[in-house]
């Protein structure tokens, strides 16, 4: 009986999905390496080896060493840990702010909606890196300031997504059915609207992580980001500038390459996920 049922294959690749597979593998390897790094390759952030400074890439040091003789590849791995963690937490903060604003606008509608959307348009017109710099400068550079800076400047898209999703759900027949079935406001919100909004919210958070990482990297590169003991990839690119000018390009270029590869993998997977949630988008793209 069971054998008669068609077997569901977990991984079914269609042509054009090799990119997804590559992105997923890259991300899996990166996350695994981040998790296992402290156990497999312990790093003493304060250890220097002044007899091994600015060595070019070799088997012993796949991405060379920096101006203090530290292995660039190992530091980049630890930098990636910090960048991804900060990026994920900040993206979550931005999603919570955006979810609340978009949720209020979408459920209440009317003048509240117009006012909140005006606020969204307002913040969108602000140069957000400049605003982020201002926030960090006034709160003094620290982990909390960086997360606040990203959260305050990156919640807009989430608010717009949640609001438009709620507005389109409001007039669907199943909501009418729930109302005529006697469901209260609260029940409609938690049982009928929330399940539809949550997948979008999760997707919005994932799409936000690369942006959060880029923002954090930019702040850290300017020397306005994370403190040295929490060195992120941005701090490393900043540190490596001096080496780069003396010809040791790998100290800055290697950590940057890690950012590019990992954020590209996250973005590629998020785009696939969006196509899955909204097949119409895919149809339009394929035409």
């Amino acid at each position: 009986m069971l054998d008669a049922l068609p077997r569901r294959r977990v991984l079914r690749l269609r042509p054009g999905q090799t990119g997804t597979l590559v992105a997923a593998s890259v991300l899996a390897v990166a996350i695994l390496a981040c998790l296992l790094a402290p156990a497999l390759w312990p790093l003493d952030q304060s250890a220097v080896a002044l007899d091994q400074t600015r060595l070019p890439p070799s088997w012993a040091h796949p991405a060379g060493t920096d101006d203090l003789g530290r292995d660039v590849s190992l530091r980049a791995l630890y930098g990636l840990r910090v960048s991804l963690l900060v990026g994920a937490v900040a993206a979550l903060v931005a999603t919570v702010i955006g979810g609340i604003v978009g949720g209020i606008a979408g459920t209440l509608g009317g003048p509240v909606d117009r006012l909140l959307m005006r606020v969204v348009d307002t913040v969108a017109a602000l140069p957000h890196l400049l605003l982020g710099i201002f926030i960090v400068a006034m709160l003094r550079p620290s982990l909390g300031a960086v997360i606040a800076s990203i959260g305050v400047t990156h919640w807009l898209s989430t608010a717009r997504i949640v609001r438009s999703e709620l507005l389109s759900l409001r007039n669907r027949p199943f909501i009418d059915a729930a109302i005529s079935g006697g469901a209260g406001r609260r029940r409609i919100l938690t049982r009928h609207l929330l399940p539809h909004v949550l997948p979008r919210l999760a997707l919005a958070t994932t799409l936000m992580i690369p942006h959060a990482v880029w923002h954090e990297t930019a702040l850290s590169f300017l020397g306005l980001g994370l403190p040295p003991h929490l060195a992120s990839l941005g701090n490393m690119i900043n540190d490596g500038q001096g080496s780069l000018l003396t010809g040791a390009w790998w100290a800055s270029i290697a950590p940057g390459a890690v950012i590019v590869v990992v954020t590209l993998a996250i973005a590629a997977l998020a785009v696939r996920w969006r196509e899955y949630l909204d097949p119409r988008v895919r149809a339009e793209l394929q035409l």
């Binding site: 490596g240 940057g256 950012i259």
Partner: peptide, 22 residues
């Protein structure tokens, strides 16, 4: 375009200095 979009602008800048200036 997708690749460049993932590159921090200062990283492109540093890479271009390494190649075209140095």
């Amino acid at each position: 375009a997708y690749a460049v979009e993932a590159m921090p602008v200062f990283w492109i800048g540093l890479a271009s200095i390494a190649v075209f200036a140095l």
